[in-house]
Design a protein around this nucleic acid. Structure first.
Length: 629
DNA sequence: GGCGTCGAGCAT
DNA sequence: GATCATGCTCGACGCC
């Protein structure tokens, strides 16, 4: 893969018509990620946000089909950005409907008239952003199909240009998120934010119905009308249709509330700005375009050409991270946790790993390069030139992303205005995600720009580092060196080590942890840094990637109970399993009441025999699987 | 009942 | 036509 200088004065950036990756030449990369006054958001005050929901009169037991089942109600809520309350609340209803307080009811006798009048409403409100729940896969296509079936003239003009809106079937598939068949409707000039898509991307929940999502984030349930009731209510009286309209209205309002609560608009806008991709890509596309877009900008700045090649897809796998063999058991002494901060990004920076710095053996002879001075050999055997020769694009991108993040975090800490805080937090988050995805993309063998040399060198450095950390800590903190106990690394995964210093005193364990992090950090190239984060006490280490413990950051009181990989955090069990194990862990860790925990399990699941105490200490405390509804 | 394989879901 | 990574545990399932 050749990276060459572009012809003087001309930018030859990889052109990719499909992914619209072409970058406008006048915007510099630095401008995009660098600090921008948050005050610019005040200009967004006039932004109008439409949140809507439709109801259909489905036949019994059949999912509504646009060719058969009519649209009976469309509820709309329009809010100005920054306002607490909407300034428009209305419901377009088929047939007469009793009034609802503070809400405009528009009754129609014909479905065609209702649809075309809703479109006029859309044009009049002229929203900048359209949101709702599952609008991309249901409401938009359904409305379009229905209008087509009823031959409503001019219904499909929803955009701000003279372009018709069309629902297209797209297939979104990625290894990360699995295969998803989605539909996409264009509304040129108006952004779409489907809350279902957003929440499925950003949050892992047991259920994604609007009802359960709202109870999770807003702490309230929507008024649930079973779908079989919808037709029944519609065919009843004005009063029953009013009940349906209320339900529909609430479904329209809740996405707006979720959007505010989760700062979706702020977070996504900042992500679009940092990565330089269109807003709609954030929900419709994957991680790769964001990275490519950033890389294009950086390359453009330096007049570099990114080769437009399609590497043959290979099933090659490379070695990943080390997981230190756990010393399983229950620990009632403090366990200090040391973490490398942004491990992979910092490795890429420290060793200048990049597409533009990768060299081969023949290059070394050709240019007469000197080892360690001009180039380094990674533990994996690949070779990269040092910053003395050329600083890699990836290192520069990461450096800028991470320093921009530090800046955003500083401002966040000083800011008091909740709106500006939300923006800054979104920016900080976007910068972090961007930095962390760089490594993954170099290893994506079926992607656009894989580079296994970078990926496997990164992990090989990581493996070396965690091993060295373990050795250094155990070598230094021992009785022979005047410490009271021999320290022992009992577990570690990728970028972290759990250390048993042996002391029973929390404050002392924290001091040792802090000391160790500084000591080990000094042994590595900048900006690699080992940080002391927390102490677990007590700590239950069940297996690799499965543990629980009380999480302390100050010696006075624990912050929380932390659980990793155990059934309490997994979504593939019934709730009973989750709650029972959660309660048992609480009894063991917080109350330190093991017999009580046994008693509780036995009481809940009588078939579970009472285990003896020694078994629990070995971590075999779980009874037979309790699978039932 | 032990053994291998596969997929889900998590940790990092 | 597009899709960030690997490591690990555990339950389900088929097989003998």
């Amino acid at each position: 893969m050749a990276w060459v200088e572009a012809p003087a004065g001309r930018y030859a950036i990889m052109s990719d018509k499909q992914s619209n990756c072409q970058i406008e030449a006048q915007i510099s990369y630095r401008d995009l990620i660098a600090h921008k006054p948050v005050g610019e958001w005040s200009k967004m005050a006039p932004l109008r946000i439409l949140s809507f929901d439709i109801e259909c009169a489905g036949r019994k037991g059949i999912f509504p089909e646009a060719n058969h089942d009519s649209v009976i109600q469309i509820a709309n809520v329009v809010t100005k950005y920054g306002d607490k309350k909407p300034f428009v609340r209305n419901v377009f209803c088929l047939d007469t409907t009793s009034p609802i307080v503070a809400t405009q009811i528009l009754s129609f006798d014909k479905e065609e008239k209702m649809l075309s009048s809703w479109r006029d409403f859309l044009e009049k409100v002229d929203p900048d952003i359209i949101t709702g729940y599952n609008i991309a896969n249901f409401d938009f296509p359904y409305l379009l199909d229905r209008a087509k079936h009823l031959k409503v003239h001019g219904f499909e003009y929803w955009s701000r240009t003279h372009v018709k809106s069309v629902a297209k079937e797209t297939n979104f598939s990625s290894k990360q998120m699995g295969n998803r068949d989605t539909k996409a409707t264009n509304t040129n000039g108006r952004l779409q934010l489907d809350l279902l898509q957003l929440i499925q991307r950003d949050h892992q929940l047991r259920s994604y119905t609007l009802n359960s999502v709202c109870s999770h984030f807003l702490g309230e349930q929507k008024e649930d009308v079973h779908h079989s009731m919808i037709t029944e209510l519609f065919e009843g009286t004005p009063e029953s249709r009013r009940r349906l309209a209320l339900y529909c209205l609430k479904d329209a309002y809740l996405p707006q509330r979720l959007m505010d609560k989760l700062s979706c608009l702020e977070n996504y806008t900042e992500m679009a700005r940092v990565t330089g991709v269109p807003f709609n890509f954030l929900l419709a596309r994957g991680q790769q375009v964001k990275f490519l877009s950033q890389l294009c900008r950086k390359a453009l700045e330096q007049k570099l050409v990114i080769p437009n090649v399609r590497p043959e897809s290979s099933e090659e796998q490379y070695e990943g991270a080390t997981v230190i063999e756990p010393t399983r058991g229950y620990y009632d002494v403090p366990i200090a946790t040391l973490d490398f901060a942004s491990l992979y990004p910092s490795i890429i920076q420290a060793h200048n790993l990049c597409y533009t710095t990768l060299i081969k053996k023949k290059d070394i002879e050709k240019w007469n390069l000197k080892k360690d001075e001009d180039y380094v050999v990674t533990p994996n055997g690949d070779m990269f030139v040092t910053t003395k020769q050329r600083k890699g694009l990836l290192a520069q991108i990461l450096e800028e992303l991470l320093s921009a993040r530090k800046q955003a975090k500083r401002e966040l800490a000083a800011e008091t205005d909740p709106f500006k805080k939300a923006v800054l937090n979104g920016r900080q988050l976007a910068l972090k995600i961007s930095a962390n995805s760089v490594y993954g993309l170099t290893g994506a063998t079926n992607g656009k720009l894989p580079c296994l040399e970078i990926a496997s060198s990164t992990t090989s450095y990581g493996r070396q580092m965690i091993e060295k950390t373990k050795q250094e800590v155990e070598k230094r903190y021992c009785i022979a060196n005047g410490y009271t106990h021999d320290a022992q690394v009992i577990y570690g995964d990728t970028d972290s080590v759990m250390v048993k210093f042996g002391t029973k005193d929390l404050a002392e364990a924290m001091k040792l942890g802090e000391d160790a992090s500084q000591f080990v950090s000094s042994k590595f190239v900048k900006p690699i840094k080992l940080e002391f984060e927390k102490v677990y006490f007590p700590y239950l280490l069940i297996n690799k990637k499965r543990y629980a413990g009380l999480y302390w950051t100050k010696p006075e009181k624990y912050d929380k109970m932390d659980t990793k990989g155990i059934e309490t955090v997994r979504r593939d069990n019934c709730l009973l399993v989750q709650t029972v194990i959660e309660k048992v862990l609480r009894m063991i860790l917080i109350d330190q009441d093991v017999p009580g925990a046994q008693e509780y399990v036995h009481h809940t699941i009588p078939s579970c025999p009472l285990a003896n105490h020694s078994q629990i200490r070995q971590g075999h405390h779980r009874g037979p699987p309790a699978k039932q509804d």
